[in-house]
Design a binder for these strands. Structure first.
Length: 481
DNA sequence: CTATGGCACGGATT
DNA sequence: AATCCGTGCCATAG
């Protein structure tokens, strides 16, 4: 109840200034993504001398880092209550462990298929073998030169002009060879940049009659930075499409394109710290099964930076002993630091409550997939959590969750009414024996969903998923779920 | 005539 | 107040 007041931005008539400052800061922090928040916390730590990091505290049995106080929620045996009550706790972001790549995700990637080069050969040899038949004898040295200058990602950072110079060949020749290389497997190899690699892959997909959503190449041309879940709205705006379509587009790109042609999967290499791709690798929330038991409770970790931060008590005590002039400064410093911590805790608290609610209400969705989402609105959640709806909005935006199957989804998926229908639609189309028209699909889908879904809506969903219209669909083609 | 995509409207959501 | 979403209407292509 006191909580409610603090979280509710309706400015009462007599709200003290202090409270509104906390509020503003809490709101700000709440809407940040995990990465942005981490940066902010680090900045604050550097800026505020009164902040310190408390010694690490680990759970004796499971070894996790724990917050400054309290028992380890995971290792405390579930109380006698409802066995399915989710176990929710704050975790240190450093404890995040990426899920093992699910087998389907790797094999679904339609690019390398089974022919990816064996570990024994080098990338250069592998590509050379493919293009050798096309090469004229005098072009071999050029190819060799280019191929040996591919970087670990399969990209060619060298400019054609440079290569021409070193290989003593005409620019024209070099270009020709380069084109050959770029048509080889792995798709996108020899591109000058991740962006170019993806464009080449798109072209290849189109040439092999694979369905490519419209605007895909425009999206890629806008730059990798915009291809993040957290920037969907900007992407949609720049492309002049709906946000939901942009999300579908993003899914398509992430599923089918590989900015680093030489890497089979993105998940397997973590050395590259400055990975511009998938900046949201760290989710804000992880849902998992307790001991892998599908009938057990859900375990919900909410990753929260700054858990071990506190105001240095010595700093506080010393304040009393300095002269008046400095005391004011110090007091202000302490006040600001305290405020920050308070806001941080508030943010974490809100996120935890939201996560718990989601785990309770959407267990089926989390465990069994999009088709089991029970659509809800932010407003309804706000009522149940007794916070303002804008608070829920902020808590949801720029956040991602990792599901037990390893998939990373934006938290906003929980509020996407169309998700179940789209999933069902995909399933329908994937299992169709001959292409079904939108009207037919609308009919089937309506039955399946138990509510009417207009033909026009089916068309939209199709577009979102990057599925071409019936007349372009071959019975042979399958679409990845 | 059928299947689709573009546009725009009204109501819901943020 | 701004944005998003589902849908109906209409034009176009085959």
């Amino acid at each position: 109840m006191e909580l409610r007041q603090r979280l509710t931005p309706q400015v009462g008539t007599k709200v003290t200034q202090k409270v509104s400052v906390v509020l503003a800061q809490t709101m700000h922090l709440l809407s940040l993504s995990l990465d942005d928040l981490t940066a902010e916390v680090e900045a604050a730590l550097a800026q505020h001398p009164s902040l310190e990091i408390t010694p690490e505290r680990r759970c004796p049995s499971c070894g996790r880092r724990l917050p400054a106080e309290g028992p380890c929620p995971l290792c405390r045996p579930p109380l006698g209550r409802d066995a399915l009550e989710p176990i929710v706790f704050l975790a240190d972001p450093a404890d995040f462990r990426p899920p093992p790549p699910t087998p389907t995700e790797v094999e679904d990637r339609l690019l390398p298929e089974e022919t990816f080069f064996a570990q024994s050969t080098t990338l250069a040899e592998y590509v050379l073998r493919q293009i050798a038949p096309e090469l004229r004898p005098d072009e071999r040295p050029i190819a060799a030169y280019l191929l040996t200058h591919l970087d670990d990602d399969g990209l060619l950072t060298l400019s054609p002009a440079e290569a021409a110079l070193h290989a003593r060949a005409s620019l024209r020749r070099v270009r020709r060879v380069l084109r050959l290389i770029q048509q080889a497997d792995p798709p996108g190899v020899g591109a000058a940049s991740p962006q170019e690699a993806m464009l080449i892959q798109l072209r290849l997909l189109a040439e092999t009659q694979h369905p490519v959503p419209p605007k895909a190449s425009e999206a890629v041309q806008l730059g990798l930075n915009l291809l993040q879940p957290s920037r969907v709205s900007e992407l949609a705006r720049r492309l002049g499409i709906r946000q939901s379509e942009a999300r579908g587009l993003l899914d398509f790109i992430r599923a089918n394109l590989n900015p680093y042609p030489a890497r089979a999967a993105w998940g397997d290499l973590h050395q590259g710290q400055e990975e511009p791709w998938l900046p949201h690798l760290r989710p804000d929330i992880v849902f998992s099964l307790h001991n892998g038991d599908p009938n057990g409770p859900l375990v919900v970790e909410v990753f929260a930076p700054g858990l071990r931060l506190r105001v240095n008590p010595t700093f506080r005590h010393t304040t009393a002993q300095v002269d008046d002039h400095h005391r004011a400064e110090w007091q202000q410093e302490i006040q600001q630091a305290t405020l920050l911590l308070k806001s941080l805790r508030q943010r974490h608290h809100t996120l935890v409550r939201l996560a718990r609610l989601l785990a309770r209400e959407q267990r089926d969705f989390i465990l069994r997939g999009p088709r089991h989402l029970r659509p809800m609105t932010r407003a309804a959640v706000a009522r149940r959590l007794e916070v303002h709806e804008s608070t829920v909005s902020r808590a949801v935006s720029h956040k991602t969750a990792q599901l037990p199957n390893g998939r990373l989804i934006p938290l906003s998926d929980f509020f996407d009414r169309s998700l179940p229908a789209r999933a069902a639609l995909k399933a329908l189309i994937a299992s169709e024996s001959r292409p079904l028209s939108d009207t037919q699909l609308a009919h089937l889908l309506s039955q399946e969903m138990g509510r009417r879904i207009a033909r026009r809506t089916v068309a939209k969903y199709r577009a979102m998923e990057g599925i071409p219209p019936a007349y372009l669909r071959q019975p042979l083609h399958k679409y990845r779920p």
